[in-house]
Structure formats: structure tokens, C-alpha cells
Amino acid sequence: MTNADTLPLLDVRGVCVDYPDRSRGRRATTRVLDDVSLTVRPGETVGLVGESGSGKSTLGRAVLGLAPLAAGGIRLGGRAISGLTGAARRRLAGELQVVFQDPQGSLNPAMSVRDIVLEPVIAAGTPRAEAERELRVLLDRVHLPADTADRYPGEFSGGQRQRIAIARALVRRPRLIVCDEIVSALDLSTQARILDLLVEIQDDTGVALLFTSHDLAVIRAISHRVAVLYRGRLLEFGDVRDVTASPADPYTRRLLMAAPVADPARQRERRAAYRAAFTDPAASPVTT
């Protein structure tokens, strides 16, 4: 094994992100990510989990260059990518892609699926005939029929639109895809099918995923490792089986108790334990 094989694909080190806070003054800021460090290995899925406001989507935006860093750095394939702009940022699109939470909002309703999926590679200079061949492969990869290409986003269900968004993310053959709450708006059965599809794609292509969700059950189903965030701080980061079986932080235990189970009796017990955790002063979610 070469040294390059042992390096992480994505290396996030000491990242801090501040957002403007107009309620405290014109130049005031609030720290929404505070000294967060994690890695993503080639072909691995790392889950980011936490409640709304935990900073998980902000971390994804920071990796994508959409949230400027106040401190720290981000490297992809050993190369610093934080702060890239212009042509350098556009070239990075061949290695780093994103699938957003709302496929209806992220897909242009006036464009056909063919144009939506192929626009990135045609803009990058791929001949049209070659791009068309790639389109057929991609639609098959995301389990959509060939006639999907000539239809428009409004003609599809939410799950189908998310498959189209995944195809678009894959067209440049990236090394890493940021998946930002991409199943949260879908019903449970559709969620399961999309998660199965991502696992299949990862097995076939070796693409790595940075996958954000507020649902620890979803994270457990797809991730190799998991990072637990709370109020911008990283509380735990490790193998998903270890973190979910023996969580070290009280907040992670609360997330586990909040996850629904099929047995009504167990669900009542978990709900009672969850409520008790929030009234127990010794169960503060902030570690020291």
C-alpha cells in the first residue's frame, strides 16, 4: 500500500465558521462551527448527525466552498480547497459534487432531464454524442427508464426527482458527493430505496459520501463512520456501530432514544427515557 492510499480523501481540520448576527450589531457574528475536525476515506460514507442548528449542513457548505471559514482548513485528495474561487473552484467540480435536500428546488423545471443531467459535462467540453451515451448509463444506474430523458422534473415524484439529482451529481464522476438531508422529505419506503441505491452506487463506483441527516436511524443504515454535532461542536466521531451501540456522550444517547422503534411497548419506554433525559441536570448534552 502506498502512502497515497492511506491518506484521507477529505480532511477537515479545526474548521470554524461564523455567520453574521445582526441582532447584536452590524458587524457582530455568531460561531456556528467551532473547531470541527474529521476525515472521509476514499469510498467511505461519513454521516453527520444532529438536530436543527447543530452545524451539520454548514459543514457540508464549508466543504463545498459555500460557507467561508473563520479558521481551520479543508483538503481534498491532499490539496487545500478552502478559499478557492473562480476557475480553481470550477475545476474542483469534477471531484466534488452535491445533492440537495429539495430536488424540486434544485432542478430547473424548464429544462428536460437530459439537459439537467448533461449540462455539467457539456459545459466542461464533453462532445454531445459522448455525453448522450453517458446519460443512458446514468439513468440505468439510478434505476430510471430511458424515456425519463425527454421529460421534465414536474412530471416525477419526489423520490424520482432525487434520483435525477443523483444522476446529475454522478455525471462528472466525482470522488466525493455531499448529500445534504437528501431523504428527509421522503416517506420511509422511498427513503429506504434511495439509501439502497446510494450503497449500490458506492459499491460500483467507489465514490465517497458526506451524508447529513437529523435522523440517527438513517445515518446508521448508510454510514461507515458517524460524526455527532451539537451547537457547532463535534461531540463524537467514530465507527457507526461503536457510536450507536455505546455512545460516549449524553446527547448521542438522546438521539438514539428519539429514534422510533416498531414495538409500541419499547417505544413508550424509550419516549419516557427520552423525556427523563431532558429533565435530568446530570444529562447535559454538552461535554466538558
Rank of each mutant, 00 (worst) to 15 (best):
L170E: 03
L10D: 06
E155V: 07
L170S: 06
P127H: 13
S223H: 06
E44W: 04
V243M: 03
R128N: 06
R24P: 03
D147S: 07
V17Q: 11
D280P: 10
Q267C: 01
L38M: 14
D215L: 03
A217N: 08
V121L: 11
V218R: 03
R268P: 04
S213L: 00
H224I: 02
T252W: 09
D242P: 00
S189L: 06
F237L: 15
N3Y: 00
R151D: 12
T190V: 15
V99A: 09
L256V: 04
F211C: 09
L92A: 01
P247F: 08
P145E: 02
D5Y: 00
T190E: 11
A165L: 00
E181P: 03
T45K: 08
L9N: 03
A185P: 06
V218E: 05
F100M: 10
A258F: 03
V98C: 09
A70W: 14
A248I: 02
S213Y: 00
L138I: 07
R253V: 02
S246I: 01
L209R: 02
V121S: 02
P109N: 08
V40K: 00
V49D: 11
F278M: 12
A93T: 15
A248Y: 06
G53L: 00
V98F: 06
T85R: 15
S223C: 15
A149E: 12
L234Q: 02
I81K: 09
R141D: 14
R13Q: 15
G14I: 04
V261T: 15
R79C: 00
A28Q: 09
A124V: 07
R266S: 05
E269Q: 13
R193C: 02
R275N: 09
R26D: 04
A208E: 00
A131R: 14
G43Y: 06
V46E: 01
A123N: 15
V218K: 05
T58A: 04
R31T: 13
A185D: 13
F100G: 08
A70Y: 12
A192G: 12
Y19P: 00
